[in-house]
Design a protein around this nucleic acid. Structure first.
Lengths: 146, 146
DNA sequence: GGCCAAATGAAATCGAATTTCACTTTCAAT
DNA sequence: ATTGAAAGTGAAATTCGATTTCATTTGGCC
């Protein structure tokens, strides 16, 4: 880790050490706020902006990327070898990943058709997860709250 | 239009008349700011919040939906019969649509596998469009500015 | 015409993201 | 080990789009 940073001209610090570890140990898809809370349980002197900057840095060195779902909160997820899409529950905000290699092989020809240089592919299914649907049946019948 | 609103309990007003028309005449993918500028060229007394509320209303009555690309600006696009994905140029921010019926037929089984009730499907290709790539060759060699 | 819920516009507020700034720390070159 | 320049830190301030508030006006049904 220290090496990875150094080769790109960044310094290792105790804060980064802690934040990077917390990020890797956290499940997928943490927001700055999520990680900030986790980190401050261990060292409450670490500032929000340091966590924010560290997450940006983690992205810069290629270990993670931002995920934006349109709910106003940016999440960060580790970059994985195989491309995946997201099932996003509009109610509980839970993210589930699904394999999308087969979809990628459809998207790439499309990009080629439009002479587009691909930097990233994204596939999302927004809706209601099984748990939320069950929960809704026991309470109201509308499904969504807004 | 007036009827569509009335049946859902909304009133038609001169402002809405103008904003709705401007939205339909505008190309796809306008932001609130975009539409506000267009509208105020015709009637500069119309407020930003009215434009914002009208776009929300257009979504509510089912004529448009929000598109979020992670660049901090919400765009609105007319709902079309056939599902489409977006080619999003990270440099000039231009959106191009592509047909994705074949991808939808891959996504639906996935949703079913996860017992997910689908509310919306999204497919995006982020990258550089042909124009921007050409433009970059004539200036710098890095490609992206940040 | 008259009512009254809905709509409007300006300004205020919200909240996440990002920047500023004074101070501290890292680390490569002594 | 020392040190100085560059990078990093934390608190607070700022930014900026989205959203709400509120006093006032308006649409459309009686």
């Amino acid at each position: 880790m220290r090496e990875l940073l150094r080769t790109k001209g960044y310094k290792m610090t105790p804060q980064r050490e802690l934040i990077f570890r917390a990020f890797l140990e956290a499940g997928e898809h943490v927001s700055v706020e999520d990680l900030y809370q986790r980190v401050r349980e261990i060292d409450s002197s670490i500032g929000y902006s340091t966590v924010w900057r560290s997450l940006k840095l983690i992205c810069t060195v290629g270990l993670a990327k931002e995920v934006n779902l349109g709910d106003g909160v940016t999440r960060y997820e580790r970059i994985t070898l195989q491309p995946h899409g997201h099932l996003y529950c509009l109610q509980c905000k839970t993210l589930t990943e699904f394999e999308m290699a087969n979809i990628v092989s459809l998207l790439e020809p499309i990009a080629r058709t439009y002479r587009f240089q691909v930097e990233g592919l994204k596939c999302e299914i927004h809706g209601l997860c099984e748990e939320c649907r069950k929960r809704n049946q026991n309470t109201d019948s509308t499904g969504l709250t807004h």
